[in-house]
Design a protein around this nucleic acid. Structure first.
Lengths: 113, 113
DNA sequence: CCAATGCATATCCATATGGATATATGATGA
DNA sequence: TCATCATATATCCATATGGATATGCATTGG
């Protein structure tokens, strides 16, 4: 087989920088496709396809209004990514951890003595 | 063109679940390839290739010891992912707050009638 | 009712992927 | 030196990708 489909999960969907850009724009609020096209400087079919991928992994939602489709963010779809990567945060902030440990130790000594 | 190479950045590298698994294992400390093969239940060439991808994006480092290659984690390579996704955290937390608000409102209606 | 607008979808192409398997490389021990 | 172990690399295959372009399909304004 080939690489997992981009629509497999948020990790794959979000590996594409353009799709992250789209999400970033949508943090400002609902946007019609045309506006995303303008902002991103892509041709419309590409934006539509990126949006489809994002929709399939639940990262965006559509609302129809006349001939426009208004896309909005569904940030919870990104939670699994956050959950996973957060497990690593303390590793690059190890210094703080160590400091915390030291402080905890000192405090315990304090209370015990 | 095709999809961006898996070695393009941490986002692409980590989109593959096996590679996330490898990183997860390495949080426990340095491991030789053979051990990763055992733990993951993959054939050795695949593990080696995943490790290569992870190395190219800076997520792991190798140390040679005799005929073994000991791989260790370089968690900072994941920081860009954390940075990006963290910008969304308050959005899904906000949703709960909103929901709480709505529920509270409904409840108040109930009690008021 | 027709033309235009806003999007979605279909198709063509080049490419890198992950799985599988085979082989190369390099260190070690006898 | 030779066999073995640990790992890397090469190759073959099927597949989904993203870019580009063309087209389909509603909705709307005149």
């Amino acid at each position: 087989m080939a690489r997992a489909a981009t629509t497999t999960d948020a990790f794959n969907a979000v590996a594409e920088p353009r799709r992250r850009e789209i999400l970033d724009v949508l943090t400002q609020g609902e946007r019609p496709v045309g506006e995303l096209v303008e902002i991103l400087g892509l041709v419309q079919p590409q934006v539509s396809r990126h949006l489809r991928v994002l929709r399939e992994v639940g990262a965006v939602e559509v609302r129809e209004e006349g001939r426009q489709r208004l896309y909005s963010l569904n940030p919870q779809a990104l939670k699994p990514i956050h959950d996973w990567v957060s497990g690593y945060q303390h590793l690059w902030e190890e210094r703080f951890e160590l400091l915390d440990g030291v402080l905890a130790g000192l405090q315990q000594e304090d209370t015990q003595e």
